[in-house]
C-alpha cells in the first residue's frame, strides 16, 4: 500500500497560543510551519475522564475525515503527541463567525450579502446531507468565516449518520433557539429537515439582526416558536398529536402574509417564500437542501455577493492576530 501523499514535505505545527478550554478539549492557535498557514489545534484529553474518549471527539474525527467541501471546516490532521495520551485535531483556522458579525451593529448587511451567506450554508449542509450526515447543531456561532470570506460549517460534535428506520434518536439536540418543532415535540425519528429548520431560523436572524425565536427555556421555546409561526394542527401536519410532547398547547393562528411582510420589511416576496418553506412546521413538507439551492431566490436579482467582498468584522482591525477575543467566546 502506498501513501497518497508520498513525497510531501515535512509538515510541522506550532502551538502559539491557548485560546479556549472546555471540559474535554483545549484549543490552541498555531501555524503549519512549512507554509505559514494558520491552524487551530484541538487537543482532546483522553483517559482523564471516567468514560474514556469523548463521543463528540469521535464524531468530529469520524465525519470530518470523510467530508471535504469548501463550506465545511477542514480537518487537516489527527495525531497523538509525545508524553501524553492526548489526541490532537488540526483544523483550519477560521478567524470569525456569523454570530459576531450579526451582533456587530456597525456592519451593514446588504440583501446580496445575506444571500451569499445563506447560499454557502446551504451548499455546506447539502454536502453533509448527501453523505447521509446530520449536523444537528446549526447556529450562527457554528458558521465560521475564513479570511477570504468563505463560510464554513463547523463543530460536528453532535453530528451523526442518518438513523435506521427502527432506531430511536435523541430529540435533545440542536441549540434551543434553532430547534425544529418535531424536536420540540420530542420526536424520536427525524431526518435532515431538522438542519433545514435551523437554517431557516438563521436566515431570519440574518435579516432581523437579532435572534428570531429566543425562547428562555424549553417550554418557552415552544410558545415563542408557535406564537411566531402558528401552532401545528392535525390539518397542516397529520399525526402531529401522536408525538410525545404534543400536549397542553396554546393554539396560535399561523401568521398572515402581511404579518410576515411587516416582520421582514426588507425581504422580497421570493425571499419570504424561501423562508416560509424552510420554516415549514411539518418536516415532511419542509424544503430539502436541494430544493432550497434551486430556489428562485438565488437566481433573482441581486446576485449573491462574492465571498471576498462580504463584510468582515472591523473590530479585528488589519492584523488578524488581534481577533483572539472572538475566538475566546467560542465554546469548545
Amino acid at each position: 500500500m502506498t501513501t497518497g501523499n508520498s513525497g510531501s514535505p515535512i509538515s510541522r505545527y506550532t502551538k502559539d497560543r491557548k485560546v479556549g478550554e472546555g471540559t474535554y478539549a483545549v484549543v490552541y492557535l498555531g501555524k503549519q510551519v512549512n507554509n505559514d498557514r494558520k491552524i487551530a489545534i484541538k487537543e482532546i484529553k483522553t483517559g482523564l475522564f471516567k468514560d474514556g474518549l469523548d463521543m463528540s471527539a469521535i464524531r468530529e474525527v469520524k465525519y470530518l475525515q470523510e467530508l471535504h467541501h469548501i463550506n465545511v471546516i477542514e480537518l487537516i490532521d489527527v495525531f497523538t503527541a509525545h508524553n501524553t495520551n492526548n489526541l490532537n485535531l488540526v483544523l483550519e483556522f477560521l478567524p470569525g463567525d456569523l454570530e459576531v458579525l450579526i451582533k456587530n451593529t456597525s456592519v451593514v448587511f446588504k440583501p446580496s450579502d445575506i444571500k451569499s451567506w445563506l447560499l454557502m450554508t446551504l451548499r455546506g449542509i447539502h454536502h453533509c446531507h448527501r453523505n447521509f450526515i446530520l449536523h444537528r447543531d446549526l447556529k450562527p456561532n457554528n458558521l465560521l468565516l475564513s479570511p477570504t470570506g468563505e463560510l464554513k460549517i463547523a463543530d460536528f460534535g453532535l453530528a451523526r449518520a442518518m438513523g435506521n428506520p427502527n432506531e430511536d434518536l435523541t430529540s435533545n439536540v440542536v441549540t434551543r433557539w434553532y430547534r425544529a418543532p418535531e424536536l420540540l415535540f420530542g420526536a424520536k425519528h427525524y431526518v435532515e429537515a431538522v438542519d433545514m429548520w435551523s437554517i431557516g431560523i438563521i436566515f431570519a436572524e440574518l435579516m432581523l439582526r437579532t435572534p428570531y425565536l429566543p425562547g428562555k427555556d424549553d417550554l418557552d421555546q415552544v410558545d415563542v416558536t408557535f406564537r411566531a409561526l402558528g401552532t401545528p394542527t392535525e390539518q397542516n401536519w397529520p399525526n402531529v398529536s401522536n408525538l410525545p410532547l404534543y400536549n397542553a398547547l396554546k393554539v396560535y393562528p399561523p401568521p398572515s402574509r402581511q404579518e410576515l411582510r411587516n416582520r421582514f420589511s426588507a425581504a422580497t416576496d421570493t425571499a419570504l417564500n424561501l423562508l416560509c418553506s424552510l420554516t415549514e412546521l411539518n418536516p415532511g413538507k419542509r424544503c430539502t437542501s436541494t430544493q432550497a439551492l434551486l430556489h428562485e431566490y438565488f437566481t433573482e436579482s441581486p446576485a449573491p455577493t462574492l465571498p471576498s467582498e462580504l463584510p468582515k468584522n472591523d473590530v479585528a482591525g488589519g492584523d488578524s492576530d488581534d481577533d483572539e477575543p472572538e475566538n475566546k467566546r467560542r465554546k469548545v
Binding site: M1, I10, Y13, T14, D16, G30, D77, A81, N83
Partner: peptide, 19 residues
C-alpha cells in the same frame, strides 16, 4: 501538553511505505 509554545515536531514522513 506542558509547553504551549514551541514547535510540535511533527512529521508526515515521505517514505513509500506507510504504517
Amino acid at each position: 501538553m506542558s509547553a504551549s509554545d514551541g514547535p510540535i515536531p511533527h512529521v508526515s514522513q515521505s517514505g513509500a511505505k506507510t504504517g
